[in-house]
Design a protein around this nucleic acid. Sequence first.
DNA 1: GCCGTTTTCGGCCCGACTGTTTTCAGTCG
Length: 585
Amino acid sequence: MQPATCNMQMSTNQRIAQLLAETADLMEIAQEDGFRIRSYRNAAAAIEGSPEQMADILADPRRKLTDIKGIGKGIAFVIGEIVERGSFERRDEMLTRYPPTALELLKIQGLGPKSIGLLWEHYRVSTVDQLEALCREGKLRELPRMGQKLEEKVLRSIETYRRGAGRFLLSHADEVAQSLRDWLSQVVPAQRCHIAGSLRRSKETVGDLDLLVESENPLLVLDRFVASPEVGEVLAKGANKASALVGRQQIQVDVRALPSASLGAALQYFSGSKEHNVALRTRAVNRKLSLNEYGLFREGDSTPVAAATEEDIYGALGLAWIAPELREHSGEIESAEQGTLPTLVELSQMRGDLHMHTRESDGRGTLEEMALAAKALGYEYIAITDHSKALAMANGLDEQRALAFARLVEQVNREGHLGIRVLSGIECDILRDGRMDLDDEALAALDFVVASVHSYMNQESGEMTQRLLRAIDNPHVKAIGHPTGRILLHRDAYAYQFEEVATACAAKRVAMEINASPERLDLHASLIRGAKAKGVRFVVDTDAHHPRHLTNMKFGVGMARRGWLEAADILNTQSYENLRKLLRP
DNA sequence: GCCGTTTTCGGCCCGACTGTTTTCAGTCG
Protein backbone atom coordinates (compact mmCIF):
# COMPACT_ATOMS: atom_id res chain seq x y z
CA MET A 1 0.00 0.00 0.00
CA GLN A 2 1.16 3.47 -0.82
CA PRO A 3 1.23 5.41 2.41
CA ALA A 4 -1.28 8.25 2.23
CA THR A 5 0.51 11.27 0.92
CA CYS A 6 0.88 13.83 3.57
CA ASN A 7 2.18 16.94 1.99
CA MET A 8 1.62 19.45 4.75
CA GLN A 9 4.44 20.35 7.04
CA MET A 10 1.78 20.90 9.62
CA SER A 11 0.78 17.29 9.48
CA THR A 12 4.12 15.81 10.44
CA ASN A 13 2.35 14.62 13.58
CA GLN A 14 0.00 12.69 11.34
CA ARG A 15 2.92 11.34 9.38
CA ILE A 16 4.73 10.20 12.52
CA ALA A 17 1.53 8.60 13.83
CA GLN A 18 1.00 6.86 10.51
CA LEU A 19 4.52 5.40 10.45
CA LEU A 20 4.15 4.11 14.01
CA ALA A 21 0.75 2.59 13.28
CA GLU A 22 1.94 0.95 10.08
CA THR A 23 4.92 -0.51 11.85
CA ALA A 24 2.63 -1.80 14.59
CA ASP A 25 0.58 -3.53 11.88
CA LEU A 26 3.68 -5.15 10.44
CA MET A 27 4.81 -6.23 13.88
CA GLU A 28 1.43 -7.81 14.40
CA ILE A 29 1.78 -9.78 11.18
CA ALA A 30 5.18 -10.89 12.47
CA GLN A 31 3.42 -11.93 15.69
CA GLU A 32 5.64 -9.89 17.90
CA ASP A 33 4.80 -9.11 21.49
CA GLY A 34 1.25 -7.76 21.62
CA PHE A 35 1.96 -5.29 24.39
CA ARG A 36 4.81 -3.73 22.52
CA ILE A 37 2.56 -3.42 19.49
CA ARG A 38 -0.04 -1.73 21.61
CA SER A 39 2.51 0.72 22.87
CA TYR A 40 3.26 1.77 19.30
CA ARG A 41 -0.45 2.19 18.61
CA ASN A 42 -1.01 4.14 21.82
CA ALA A 43 1.85 6.42 20.96
CA ALA A 44 0.48 6.90 17.43
CA ALA A 45 -2.89 7.90 18.84
CA ALA A 46 -1.33 10.24 21.38
CA ILE A 47 0.70 11.95 18.66
CA GLU A 48 -2.19 12.24 16.25
CA GLY A 49 -4.34 13.85 18.93
CA SER A 50 -1.66 16.23 20.12
CA PRO A 51 -2.21 19.88 19.29
CA GLU A 52 1.55 20.40 19.42
CA GLN A 53 4.01 19.37 16.77
CA MET A 54 6.44 16.68 17.89
CA ALA A 55 9.17 18.40 15.90
CA ASP A 56 8.65 21.63 17.85
CA ILE A 57 8.93 19.83 21.18
CA LEU A 58 12.08 18.10 19.97
CA ALA A 59 13.57 21.41 18.94
CA ASP A 60 12.91 22.95 22.34
CA PRO A 61 15.64 21.97 24.83
CA ARG A 62 13.33 22.78 27.74
CA ARG A 63 10.77 20.20 26.65
CA LYS A 64 10.68 16.42 26.64
CA LEU A 65 8.64 14.12 24.41
CA THR A 66 8.40 11.66 27.29
CA ASP A 67 6.18 14.14 29.14
CA ILE A 68 3.45 13.07 26.76
CA LYS A 69 1.49 10.13 28.09
CA GLY A 70 2.11 7.06 25.98
CA ILE A 71 5.57 8.16 24.86
CA GLY A 72 8.52 6.71 26.71
CA LYS A 73 12.22 6.60 26.05
CA GLY A 74 12.01 4.12 23.20
CA ILE A 75 9.38 5.89 21.16
CA ALA A 76 10.83 9.31 21.87
CA PHE A 77 13.99 8.06 20.21
CA VAL A 78 11.98 6.69 17.29
CA ILE A 79 10.24 10.04 16.82
CA GLY A 80 13.62 11.72 16.70
CA GLU A 81 14.67 9.32 13.99
CA ILE A 82 11.51 9.94 11.98
CA VAL A 83 11.87 13.70 12.18
CA GLU A 84 15.48 13.41 11.13
CA ARG A 85 15.27 10.97 8.25
CA GLY A 86 11.64 10.05 7.65
CA SER A 87 11.77 6.49 8.94
CA PHE A 88 13.18 4.46 11.81
CA GLU A 89 15.21 1.34 12.31
CA ARG A 90 12.48 -1.02 13.39
CA ARG A 91 10.28 0.01 10.48
CA ASP A 92 13.11 -0.45 8.00
CA GLU A 93 13.74 -3.89 9.43
CA MET A 94 10.06 -4.88 9.23
CA LEU A 95 9.99 -3.75 5.62
CA THR A 96 12.83 -6.13 4.79
CA ARG A 97 10.74 -8.98 6.18
CA TYR A 98 7.37 -8.11 4.70
CA PRO A 99 6.55 -6.08 1.62
CA PRO A 100 4.57 -2.91 2.42
CA THR A 101 1.72 -4.23 0.28
CA ALA A 102 0.97 -6.71 3.07
CA LEU A 103 -0.55 -3.82 5.00
CA GLU A 104 -3.19 -3.54 2.33
CA LEU A 105 -4.35 -7.07 3.12
CA LEU A 106 -5.34 -5.91 6.61
CA LYS A 107 -8.10 -3.94 4.98
CA ILE A 108 -9.72 -7.13 3.73
CA GLN A 109 -12.47 -8.06 6.16
CA GLY A 110 -12.11 -11.54 7.57
CA LEU A 111 -8.34 -11.66 7.37
CA GLY A 112 -6.31 -10.59 10.35
CA PRO A 113 -2.61 -10.33 11.03
CA LYS A 114 -2.21 -14.03 11.87
CA SER A 115 -3.70 -15.15 8.59
CA ILE A 116 -1.74 -12.61 6.61
CA GLY A 117 1.47 -13.76 8.25
CA LEU A 118 0.57 -17.33 7.39
CA LEU A 119 -0.21 -16.42 3.79
CA TRP A 120 3.18 -14.81 3.44
CA GLU A 121 4.99 -17.77 5.03
CA HIS A 122 3.29 -20.38 2.88
CA TYR A 123 2.54 -18.73 -0.42
CA ARG A 124 4.49 -15.44 -0.40
CA VAL A 125 1.18 -13.74 -0.99
CA SER A 126 1.23 -10.03 -0.20
CA THR A 127 -1.12 -8.28 -2.62
CA VAL A 128 -4.87 -8.26 -2.99
CA ASP A 129 -4.56 -9.61 -6.55
CA GLN A 130 -2.47 -12.56 -5.39
CA LEU A 131 -4.90 -13.20 -2.56
CA GLU A 132 -7.81 -13.24 -4.96
CA ALA A 133 -6.09 -15.75 -7.22
CA LEU A 134 -5.34 -17.97 -4.23
CA CYS A 135 -8.99 -17.99 -3.17
CA ARG A 136 -10.18 -18.78 -6.69
CA GLU A 137 -7.79 -21.73 -6.88
CA GLY A 138 -9.12 -23.01 -3.55
CA LYS A 139 -5.66 -22.88 -2.03
CA LEU A 140 -6.61 -20.92 1.06
CA ARG A 141 -8.36 -23.97 2.50
CA GLU A 142 -5.07 -25.86 2.57
CA LEU A 143 -3.93 -23.69 5.45
CA PRO A 144 -4.86 -24.59 9.02
CA ARG A 145 -8.20 -23.28 10.25
CA MET A 146 -9.15 -21.97 6.86
CA GLY A 147 -11.87 -23.38 4.70
CA GLN A 148 -14.13 -22.85 1.74
CA LYS A 149 -16.39 -20.43 3.57
CA LEU A 150 -13.47 -18.19 4.39
CA GLU A 151 -12.40 -18.22 0.73
CA GLU A 152 -15.87 -17.08 -0.27
CA LYS A 153 -15.93 -14.43 2.42
CA VAL A 154 -12.53 -13.09 1.41
CA LEU A 155 -13.58 -12.90 -2.24
CA ARG A 156 -16.64 -10.87 -1.28
CA SER A 157 -14.50 -8.66 0.94
CA ILE A 158 -12.07 -8.04 -1.90
CA GLU A 159 -14.95 -6.96 -4.09
CA THR A 160 -16.18 -4.54 -1.41
CA TYR A 161 -12.66 -3.25 -0.89
CA ARG A 162 -12.19 -2.63 -4.61
CA ARG A 163 -15.44 -0.72 -4.81
CA GLY A 164 -13.65 1.79 -2.66
CA ALA A 165 -15.67 0.99 0.38
CA GLY A 166 -13.98 1.75 3.63
CA ARG A 167 -14.65 5.26 4.78
CA PHE A 168 -17.83 7.21 4.23
CA LEU A 169 -18.74 10.84 4.57
CA LEU A 170 -20.38 11.73 7.86
CA SER A 171 -23.44 12.97 5.99
CA HIS A 172 -23.90 9.63 4.26
CA ALA A 173 -23.65 7.68 7.50
CA ASP A 174 -26.11 10.11 9.06
CA GLU A 175 -28.64 9.56 6.28
CA VAL A 176 -28.38 5.77 6.47
CA ALA A 177 -28.75 5.90 10.25
CA GLN A 178 -31.87 8.03 10.08
CA SER A 179 -33.47 5.85 7.46
CA LEU A 180 -32.76 2.66 9.43
CA ARG A 181 -34.15 4.29 12.52
CA ASP A 182 -37.36 4.96 10.62
CA TRP A 183 -37.44 1.38 9.39
CA LEU A 184 -36.92 -0.03 12.87
CA SER A 185 -39.54 2.26 14.35
CA GLN A 186 -42.03 -0.30 13.12
CA VAL A 187 -40.94 -2.62 15.94
CA VAL A 188 -39.38 -0.22 18.44
CA PRO A 189 -39.95 3.50 19.12
CA ALA A 190 -37.37 5.72 17.43
CA GLN A 191 -36.18 7.20 20.73
CA ARG A 192 -35.10 3.70 21.78
CA CYS A 193 -32.83 3.42 18.76
CA HIS A 194 -29.49 5.09 19.49
CA ILE A 195 -26.61 6.02 17.25
CA ALA A 196 -23.19 5.12 18.64
CA GLY A 197 -19.77 4.75 17.05
CA SER A 198 -17.82 7.38 15.17
CA LEU A 199 -21.02 8.96 13.83
CA ARG A 200 -21.97 9.86 17.39
CA ARG A 201 -18.49 11.29 17.86
CA SER A 202 -18.94 13.35 14.68
CA LYS A 203 -15.78 11.97 13.19
CA GLU A 204 -15.34 13.48 9.72
CA THR A 205 -15.47 10.14 7.99
CA VAL A 206 -17.12 7.00 9.26
CA GLY A 207 -16.09 3.40 8.66
CA ASP A 208 -19.24 1.71 9.82
CA LEU A 209 -22.43 2.47 11.62
CA ASP A 210 -23.35 1.30 15.13
CA LEU A 211 -26.98 1.26 16.20
CA LEU A 212 -28.08 0.29 19.69
CA VAL A 213 -31.68 -0.66 20.18
CA GLU A 214 -33.32 -0.95 23.58
CA SER A 215 -35.58 -3.96 23.43
CA GLU A 216 -36.64 -6.97 25.44
CA ASN A 217 -37.06 -8.85 22.19
CA PRO A 218 -33.72 -8.84 20.34
CA LEU A 219 -34.80 -11.32 17.72
CA LEU A 220 -37.67 -9.12 16.60
CA VAL A 221 -35.31 -6.16 16.16
CA LEU A 222 -32.62 -8.10 14.32
CA ASP A 223 -35.15 -9.80 12.03
CA ARG A 224 -36.65 -6.43 11.18
CA PHE A 225 -33.19 -5.01 10.50
CA VAL A 226 -32.05 -7.68 8.06
CA ALA A 227 -35.44 -7.55 6.33
CA SER A 228 -34.87 -3.91 5.32
CA PRO A 229 -34.89 -3.42 1.54
CA GLU A 230 -31.70 -1.38 2.03
CA VAL A 231 -29.85 -4.35 3.50
CA GLY A 232 -27.65 -6.31 1.14
CA GLU A 233 -25.35 -9.00 2.37
CA VAL A 234 -25.83 -10.08 5.98
CA LEU A 235 -22.35 -10.58 7.45
CA ALA A 236 -23.39 -12.01 10.80
CA LYS A 237 -26.52 -12.52 12.81
CA GLY A 238 -26.54 -13.86 16.33
CA ALA A 239 -28.83 -13.63 19.34
CA ASN A 240 -28.02 -10.02 20.19
CA LYS A 241 -26.18 -8.59 17.25
CA ALA A 242 -26.40 -8.49 13.48
CA SER A 243 -24.10 -6.95 10.87
CA ALA A 244 -24.97 -6.20 7.27
CA LEU A 245 -23.95 -4.07 4.31
CA VAL A 246 -26.52 -1.36 3.70
CA GLY A 247 -27.47 0.91 0.83
CA ARG A 248 -25.91 1.57 -2.54
CA GLN A 249 -22.57 2.43 -0.99
CA GLN A 250 -22.67 -0.75 1.10
CA ILE A 251 -21.76 0.77 4.43
CA GLN A 252 -21.47 -1.83 7.18
CA VAL A 253 -24.10 -1.45 9.88
CA ASP A 254 -23.94 -3.23 13.22
CA VAL A 255 -27.21 -3.43 15.13
CA ARG A 256 -27.22 -4.53 18.74
CA ALA A 257 -30.32 -5.16 20.80
CA LEU A 258 -30.01 -4.77 24.54
CA PRO A 259 -32.07 -4.20 27.68
CA SER A 260 -32.57 -0.60 28.80
CA ALA A 261 -30.88 -1.35 32.11
CA SER A 262 -27.49 -1.52 30.38
CA LEU A 263 -28.02 1.21 27.79
CA GLY A 264 -25.49 3.58 29.35
CA ALA A 265 -22.77 0.96 29.40
CA ALA A 266 -23.50 -0.05 25.82
CA LEU A 267 -23.59 3.56 24.59
CA GLN A 268 -20.31 4.23 26.31
CA TYR A 269 -18.73 1.08 25.00
CA PHE A 270 -19.86 1.32 21.39
CA SER A 271 -19.32 5.04 20.98
CA GLY A 272 -15.59 4.62 21.33
CA SER A 273 -13.08 5.69 20.44
CA LYS A 274 -11.17 2.53 21.01
CA GLU A 275 -8.34 4.50 22.62
CA HIS A 276 -10.72 6.33 24.92
CA ASN A 277 -12.32 3.05 25.95
CA VAL A 278 -9.05 1.32 26.63
CA ALA A 279 -8.03 4.22 28.85
CA LEU A 280 -11.36 4.10 30.63
CA ARG A 281 -11.20 0.37 31.22
CA THR A 282 -7.66 0.69 32.50
CA ARG A 283 -8.94 3.32 34.91
CA ALA A 284 -11.63 0.87 36.00
CA VAL A 285 -9.10 -1.89 36.58
CA ASN A 286 -6.99 0.45 38.71
CA ARG A 287 -10.04 0.85 40.90
CA LYS A 288 -10.67 -2.87 41.16
CA LEU A 289 -13.52 -2.56 38.73
CA SER A 290 -14.21 -4.03 35.35
CA LEU A 291 -15.98 -2.23 32.52
CA ASN A 292 -17.72 -3.92 29.63
CA GLU A 293 -20.74 -3.20 27.44
CA TYR A 294 -23.10 -4.41 30.17
CA GLY A 295 -21.89 -2.26 32.99
CA LEU A 296 -19.23 -1.39 35.47
CA PHE A 297 -18.66 -4.29 37.87
CA ARG A 298 -16.87 -4.96 41.09
CA GLU A 299 -14.75 -8.06 41.09
CA GLY A 300 -16.85 -11.16 41.71
CA ASP A 301 -20.11 -9.23 41.81
CA SER A 302 -22.60 -9.62 39.00
CA THR A 303 -24.67 -6.61 40.06
CA PRO A 304 -23.28 -3.59 38.25
CA VAL A 305 -22.03 -0.53 40.08
CA ALA A 306 -23.30 1.50 37.12
CA ALA A 307 -24.94 0.59 33.81
CA ALA A 308 -28.10 2.51 33.00
CA THR A 309 -26.63 5.85 31.94
CA GLU A 310 -23.28 7.11 30.73
CA GLU A 311 -23.29 9.70 33.50
CA ASP A 312 -23.45 6.87 36.05
CA ILE A 313 -20.50 5.10 34.48
CA TYR A 314 -18.26 8.14 34.22
CA GLY A 315 -19.39 9.25 37.66
CA ALA A 316 -18.51 5.91 39.24
CA LEU A 317 -15.04 6.26 37.74
CA GLY A 318 -14.65 9.68 39.32
CA LEU A 319 -15.19 11.56 36.09
CA ALA A 320 -17.59 14.14 34.75
CA TRP A 321 -19.57 12.94 31.73
CA ILE A 322 -17.51 13.42 28.59
CA ALA A 323 -19.17 14.52 25.35
CA PRO A 324 -18.72 11.87 22.63
CA GLU A 325 -16.89 14.33 20.35
CA LEU A 326 -14.07 14.56 22.90
CA ARG A 327 -13.57 10.84 23.36
CA GLU A 328 -10.33 10.49 21.45
CA HIS A 329 -7.98 9.95 24.36
CA SER A 330 -6.37 13.32 23.88
CA GLY A 331 -6.64 14.82 27.33
CA GLU A 332 -10.40 14.52 27.89
CA ILE A 333 -10.14 12.02 30.74
CA GLU A 334 -7.69 14.23 32.65
CA SER A 335 -9.98 17.23 32.07
CA ALA A 336 -13.01 15.27 33.24
CA GLU A 337 -11.13 14.29 36.37
CA GLN A 338 -10.12 17.87 37.13
CA GLY A 339 -13.53 19.28 36.21
CA THR A 340 -12.04 21.41 33.47
CA LEU A 341 -13.91 20.08 30.44
CA PRO A 342 -15.03 22.85 28.09
CA THR A 343 -18.69 23.77 27.78
CA LEU A 344 -18.90 22.76 24.15
CA VAL A 345 -20.74 24.86 21.61
CA GLU A 346 -24.23 23.59 20.67
CA LEU A 347 -25.97 23.77 17.33
CA SER A 348 -28.75 25.78 18.98
CA GLN A 349 -26.24 28.51 19.81
CA MET A 350 -25.51 29.30 16.18
CA ARG A 351 -27.08 32.62 15.28
CA GLY A 352 -26.01 32.97 11.70
CA ASP A 353 -24.23 31.47 8.73
CA LEU A 354 -21.54 33.56 7.05
CA HIS A 355 -20.61 31.60 3.94
CA MET A 356 -23.10 30.71 1.23
CA HIS A 357 -23.61 31.05 -2.50
CA THR A 358 -26.48 32.06 -4.75
CA ARG A 359 -27.27 31.87 -8.44
CA GLU A 360 -25.13 34.97 -8.89
CA SER A 361 -22.20 32.56 -8.92
CA ASP A 362 -22.46 28.78 -8.61
CA GLY A 363 -25.26 28.45 -6.03
CA ARG A 364 -28.72 27.15 -6.82
CA GLY A 365 -30.91 29.46 -4.73
CA THR A 366 -31.63 33.20 -4.84
CA LEU A 367 -30.71 35.62 -2.09
CA GLU A 368 -34.34 35.54 -0.93
CA GLU A 369 -34.50 31.73 -0.91
CA MET A 370 -31.29 31.43 1.08
CA ALA A 371 -32.39 34.12 3.51
CA LEU A 372 -35.79 32.56 4.11
CA ALA A 373 -34.30 29.09 4.59
CA ALA A 374 -31.85 30.56 7.10
CA LYS A 375 -34.65 32.41 8.86
CA ALA A 376 -36.58 29.14 9.12
CA LEU A 377 -33.58 27.70 10.97
CA GLY A 378 -33.91 30.49 13.50
CA TYR A 379 -30.87 32.51 12.42
CA GLU A 380 -30.58 36.23 13.04
CA TYR A 381 -28.26 36.94 10.14
CA ILE A 382 -26.49 35.51 7.13
CA ALA A 383 -23.74 36.59 4.82
CA ILE A 384 -24.11 35.93 1.12
CA THR A 385 -20.61 35.20 -0.15
CA ASP A 386 -20.58 34.44 -3.84
CA HIS A 387 -17.36 33.72 -5.66
CA SER A 388 -15.10 36.38 -7.10
CA LYS A 389 -14.14 36.75 -10.74
CA ALA A 390 -11.07 34.47 -10.74
CA LEU A 391 -13.51 31.58 -10.56
CA ALA A 392 -14.82 32.35 -14.02
CA MET A 393 -16.26 28.86 -14.27
CA ALA A 394 -18.50 29.69 -11.32
CA ASN A 395 -19.44 33.07 -12.82
CA GLY A 396 -17.63 34.90 -10.01
CA LEU A 397 -18.35 38.56 -9.36
CA ASP A 398 -16.09 41.33 -10.63
CA GLU A 399 -15.71 44.68 -8.85
CA GLN A 400 -18.70 46.21 -10.56
CA ARG A 401 -21.04 43.36 -9.70
CA ALA A 402 -19.71 43.24 -6.15
CA LEU A 403 -20.43 46.94 -5.65
CA ALA A 404 -23.91 46.54 -7.11
CA PHE A 405 -24.48 43.59 -4.81
CA ALA A 406 -23.46 45.62 -1.75
CA ARG A 407 -26.01 48.29 -2.72
CA LEU A 408 -28.69 45.67 -3.25
CA VAL A 409 -28.10 44.20 0.20
CA GLU A 410 -28.29 47.65 1.76
CA GLN A 411 -31.67 48.09 0.16
CA VAL A 412 -32.88 44.64 1.25
CA ASN A 413 -31.94 45.39 4.85
CA ARG A 414 -33.58 48.81 4.68
CA GLU A 415 -36.82 47.28 3.48
CA GLY A 416 -36.52 44.53 6.09
CA HIS A 417 -39.11 42.32 4.39
CA LEU A 418 -36.98 39.16 4.73
CA GLY A 419 -37.05 39.27 8.51
CA ILE A 420 -33.38 38.39 8.76
CA ARG A 421 -30.28 40.56 8.59
CA VAL A 422 -28.22 40.02 5.44
CA LEU A 423 -24.52 40.86 5.25
CA SER A 424 -23.07 41.59 1.86
CA GLY A 425 -20.12 39.31 1.42
CA ILE A 426 -17.82 37.67 -1.03
CA GLU A 427 -15.71 34.55 -1.10
CA CYS A 428 -12.76 36.26 -2.65
CA ASP A 429 -10.06 34.18 -4.30
CA ILE A 430 -6.58 34.46 -2.93
CA LEU A 431 -4.53 34.76 -6.10
CA ARG A 432 -1.35 32.85 -6.72
CA ASP A 433 0.82 35.55 -5.16
CA GLY A 434 -1.48 36.27 -2.20
CA ARG A 435 -3.18 39.32 -3.69
CA MET A 436 -6.98 39.49 -3.48
CA ASP A 437 -8.96 38.85 -6.63
CA LEU A 438 -10.95 42.10 -6.14
CA ASP A 439 -9.62 45.61 -5.56
CA ASP A 440 -9.73 47.25 -2.15
CA GLU A 441 -12.54 49.60 -3.09
CA ALA A 442 -14.88 46.71 -3.84
CA LEU A 443 -13.80 44.73 -0.77
CA ALA A 444 -14.29 47.79 1.45
CA ALA A 445 -17.88 48.10 0.29
CA LEU A 446 -18.72 44.60 1.50
CA ASP A 447 -19.56 43.54 5.07
CA PHE A 448 -17.88 40.17 5.14
CA VAL A 449 -14.94 39.05 3.03
CA VAL A 450 -13.98 35.38 3.19
CA ALA A 451 -10.65 34.79 1.50
CA SER A 452 -10.13 31.34 0.01
CA VAL A 453 -7.60 29.43 -2.06
CA HIS A 454 -9.12 27.75 -5.11
CA SER A 455 -6.14 27.53 -7.44
CA TYR A 456 -2.46 26.59 -7.56
CA MET A 457 -2.93 24.27 -4.64
CA ASN A 458 0.31 22.44 -5.34
CA GLN A 459 2.50 25.38 -4.48
CA GLU A 460 5.56 24.66 -2.41
CA SER A 461 4.88 25.04 1.31
CA GLY A 462 6.86 28.24 1.83
CA GLU A 463 5.14 29.91 -1.10
CA MET A 464 1.69 28.88 0.08
CA THR A 465 2.47 30.17 3.57
CA GLN A 466 3.50 33.55 2.18
CA ARG A 467 0.42 33.59 -0.02
CA LEU A 468 -1.89 33.09 2.96
CA LEU A 469 0.03 35.55 5.15
CA ARG A 470 -0.33 38.20 2.46
CA ALA A 471 -4.07 37.55 2.25
CA ILE A 472 -4.38 37.90 6.02
CA ASP A 473 -2.55 41.21 5.74
CA ASN A 474 -5.29 42.62 3.55
CA PRO A 475 -7.31 44.76 5.97
CA HIS A 476 -10.65 43.84 4.39
CA VAL A 477 -10.31 40.10 4.88
CA LYS A 478 -12.46 38.94 7.78
CA ALA A 479 -11.98 35.18 7.57
CA ILE A 480 -9.99 32.48 5.78
CA GLY A 481 -12.33 30.03 4.05
CA HIS A 482 -11.80 26.24 4.20
CA PRO A 483 -8.28 26.85 5.50
CA THR A 484 -6.61 23.60 4.45
CA GLY A 485 -8.43 22.93 1.20
CA ARG A 486 -8.88 19.24 1.84
CA ILE A 487 -11.68 17.30 0.17
CA LEU A 488 -12.45 14.27 2.27
CA LEU A 489 -11.60 10.91 0.68
CA HIS A 490 -10.42 12.79 -2.37
CA ARG A 491 -7.82 15.48 -1.92
CA ASP A 492 -5.25 16.19 0.76
CA ALA A 493 -4.77 19.50 2.45
CA TYR A 494 -2.39 21.82 0.64
CA ALA A 495 1.03 22.31 2.11
CA TYR A 496 1.86 25.30 4.28
CA GLN A 497 3.03 26.27 7.75
CA PHE A 498 -0.23 26.16 9.62
CA GLU A 499 1.12 27.46 12.90
CA GLU A 500 2.53 30.56 11.27
CA VAL A 501 -0.74 31.27 9.51
CA ALA A 502 -2.77 30.66 12.68
CA THR A 503 -0.51 33.04 14.60
CA ALA A 504 -1.06 35.71 11.95
CA CYS A 505 -4.83 35.16 12.05
CA ALA A 506 -4.85 35.65 15.80
CA ALA A 507 -2.73 38.78 15.59
CA LYS A 508 -4.75 40.39 12.78
CA ARG A 509 -8.11 39.22 14.16
CA VAL A 510 -8.90 37.24 11.05
CA ALA A 511 -11.22 34.34 11.81
CA MET A 512 -10.52 30.83 10.60
CA GLU A 513 -13.45 29.11 9.04
CA ILE A 514 -14.67 25.70 10.07
CA ASN A 515 -16.32 24.72 6.83
CA ALA A 516 -19.35 22.53 7.56
CA SER A 517 -19.72 21.10 4.08
CA PRO A 518 -19.62 17.31 4.58
CA GLU A 519 -17.09 16.95 1.75
CA ARG A 520 -14.72 19.35 3.47
CA LEU A 521 -15.13 19.59 7.25
CA ASP A 522 -12.16 21.85 7.08
CA LEU A 523 -10.56 22.44 9.68
CA HIS A 524 -9.58 19.15 11.22
CA ALA A 525 -10.12 18.90 14.99
CA SER A 526 -6.46 18.88 15.97
CA LEU A 527 -5.82 22.00 13.90
CA ILE A 528 -8.78 23.71 15.56
CA ARG A 529 -7.28 22.98 18.95
CA GLY A 530 -3.88 24.14 17.82
CA ALA A 531 -5.28 27.37 16.38
CA LYS A 532 -7.38 28.04 19.45
CA ALA A 533 -4.26 27.72 21.57
CA LYS A 534 -2.76 30.51 19.45
CA GLY A 535 -5.76 32.72 20.16
CA VAL A 536 -7.58 32.29 16.88
CA ARG A 537 -11.35 32.85 16.68
CA PHE A 538 -13.52 30.88 14.35
CA VAL A 539 -16.60 31.04 12.19
CA VAL A 540 -18.58 27.88 11.49
CA ASP A 541 -20.22 28.14 8.08
CA THR A 542 -21.94 25.81 5.65
CA ASP A 543 -20.63 27.09 2.31
CA ALA A 544 -24.18 26.25 1.16
CA HIS A 545 -24.80 26.13 -2.57
CA HIS A 546 -28.48 25.34 -2.08
CA PRO A 547 -30.99 26.33 0.62
CA ARG A 548 -31.11 22.77 1.92
CA HIS A 549 -27.34 22.77 2.48
CA LEU A 550 -27.84 25.24 5.32
CA THR A 551 -28.72 22.29 7.59
CA ASN A 552 -25.15 21.03 7.22
CA MET A 553 -24.32 23.40 10.07
CA LYS A 554 -24.64 20.45 12.47
CA PHE A 555 -21.59 18.79 10.90
CA GLY A 556 -19.54 21.96 11.30
CA VAL A 557 -20.62 22.32 14.91
CA GLY A 558 -19.59 18.67 15.40
CA MET A 559 -16.11 19.56 14.12
CA ALA A 560 -15.97 22.61 16.39
CA ARG A 561 -16.89 20.40 19.33
CA ARG A 562 -14.21 17.90 18.35
CA GLY A 563 -11.86 20.86 18.48
CA TRP A 564 -12.94 21.60 22.06
CA LEU A 565 -14.57 24.92 21.11
CA GLU A 566 -16.99 26.81 23.28
CA ALA A 567 -19.57 29.26 21.98
CA ALA A 568 -17.31 32.19 22.85
CA ASP A 569 -14.66 30.90 20.45
CA ILE A 570 -17.04 31.19 17.52
CA LEU A 571 -18.05 34.57 16.12
CA ASN A 572 -21.35 33.49 14.62
CA THR A 573 -22.73 32.37 17.96
CA GLN A 574 -22.80 36.09 18.77
CA SER A 575 -25.58 38.60 18.27
CA TYR A 576 -25.33 40.71 15.15
CA GLU A 577 -24.09 43.69 17.16
CA ASN A 578 -21.43 41.65 18.93
CA LEU A 579 -20.38 40.06 15.69
CA ARG A 580 -19.76 43.49 14.18
CA LYS A 581 -17.69 44.46 17.21
CA LEU A 582 -15.66 41.26 17.19
CA LEU A 583 -14.90 41.28 13.48
CA ARG A 584 -11.75 42.98 12.42
CA PRO A 585 -12.76 46.64 12.08
C1' DG B 1 7.38 -0.51 24.87
C1' DC B 2 4.84 1.98 28.67
C1' DC B 3 3.68 2.78 33.36
C1' DG B 4 3.02 3.35 38.83
C1' DT B 5 -3.18 6.01 44.69
C1' DT B 6 -0.65 -1.77 45.87
C1' DT B 7 4.41 -1.80 41.39
C1' DT B 8 11.07 0.79 38.83
C1' DC B 9 9.14 -5.10 37.84
C1' DG B 10 5.40 -7.28 36.28
C1' DG B 11 1.66 -6.26 34.81
C1' DC B 12 -0.87 -4.50 30.50
C1' DC B 13 -9.31 -4.28 28.26
C1' DC B 14 -13.34 -7.13 27.02
C1' DG B 15 -16.97 -10.00 24.78
C1' DA B 16 -19.70 -11.77 20.47
C1' DC B 17 -19.62 -14.32 16.48
C1' DT B 18 -17.85 -17.56 13.01
C1' DG B 19 -15.81 -21.44 11.07
C1' DT B 20 -13.24 -25.19 11.54
C1' DT B 21 -12.99 -28.00 15.30
C1' DT B 22 -13.09 -32.31 18.48
C1' DT B 23 -12.43 -27.69 22.73
C1' DC B 24 -11.15 -23.02 20.40
C1' DA B 25 -8.41 -19.64 17.55
C1' DG B 26 -8.96 -15.73 14.83
C1' DT B 27 -11.32 -11.60 13.77
C1' DC B 28 -13.90 -7.72 14.86
C1' DG B 29 -15.45 -3.87 17.24
